[in-house]
Simulated assay, not measured.
Amino acid sequence: MKNSLENVQSRRDRIVEITKKTDSIAVKALADQLGVSEITVRRDLKALNDMGQVNWHHGVVEKVDAESTQGNSLRSKIEQLKDSIAAAVPSYISDNSTLFVNSSSLCWRAINQLAVKPLTIITNNIRATECVRHPETSIILTGGEVRYPKESLVGTVTIQLLETMQSDYTLIGCDGISVENGVTTQNIYETQVNSTMIQRTKKKVICVADYRKIGVSSNYHVVDLSAVDVLITDSFANESVIHEFRRRGIEVVQVAN
């Protein structure tokens, strides 16, 4: 099963690469180039078109230009995916819990979704104060140095505060999560903040990430994969990687697209 999933993902990656190198290509020519049937290619193209990674119409495949209408459509689809992932978070958080929340945009969306529960939320995301919340919810900012443009709080003050606390849960977004390198981020300043949150968690670490982050390794290591209890992602995520995550004991939740 794993090899089959890897083959599907590899083929779809090749399709995206091929379309990036040409203005357009016919489905038949693409099938010939890949050495598979047109039916197989059409199945791949359906998934890639739904993801917004290619533009497939009338038997022709085109690359997606970031500045085009298709590019805008892709951004809209990703925003919808993030909303769906965020909406799944409350099911994994108990009422009256304390949780650490990092500064990712997906976690910010999740804070809004958590307005249905009374909670204590401790976060380094300044924008959390703009979120809707349950009347019995407290939002505590960690303090620290403000890093723009993300408006996250980082540095020694942030870490010192977190080290005086424990949470029931940590909700963390990332720039990559993979078997080889675990949870990673592009921002060196947030690495220790994120890892401290996870180390100070009593119950579950919940990672939220859309399909673009699954199987990806970014610049700076936060924690090994073994530190993650639950991963909430979407059904576009690389199935081979998801299979391996599950094999390693992570509860993977894939929301409908």
Rank of each mutant, 00 (worst) to 15 (best):
T129V: 15
S68H: 02
G143V: 09
I198P: 05
S167Q: 05
L114C: 03
T19M: 14
K21C: 01
Y148R: 13
I188W: 02
Q254E: 13
M51E: 15
E244Y: 01
D168Y: 02
F236E: 00
H58Y: 10
I121F: 10
V36F: 03
R147N: 01
A26L: 06
E79L: 15
A128F: 05
D83H: 14
S104A: 11
V54K: 12
I250H: 02
Q199A: 15
K202E: 15
H134Y: 09
I214G: 03
G52L: 11
V64I: 15
A31H: 05
S195C: 07
G143W: 08
K204E: 14
G144A: 09
I39E: 11
H134V: 06
D224Q: 10
I39K: 07
I206K: 07
H243F: 12
D65N: 14
V41Q: 04
T40I: 11
Q160L: 06
V157L: 14
L48C: 04
V216E: 08
V255G: 13
Q199N: 15
R246Q: 10
T164I: 00
S104M: 03
K2F: 04
G182A: 08
K150Q: 10
A110Y: 10
I232V: 04
Q254N: 01
V252T: 08
K46D: 10
Q186C: 12
V255D: 02
R42P: 03
T69N: 01
D13A: 11
V146W: 07
H58C: 01
Y169Q: 09
D65I: 10
Y169C: 06
R43Q: 11
E244A: 01
A227T: 01
T164S: 11
N187P: 00
L34P: 05
I111D: 12
M197E: 12
D229F: 06
A26Q: 13
V252F: 00
Q166I: 02
P118D: 10
L114Q: 05
G155T: 14
H134D: 14
N238Y: 05
E67K: 12
A227S: 12
A227L: 00
T184P: 13
V205D: 02
N102K: 07
T191C: 11
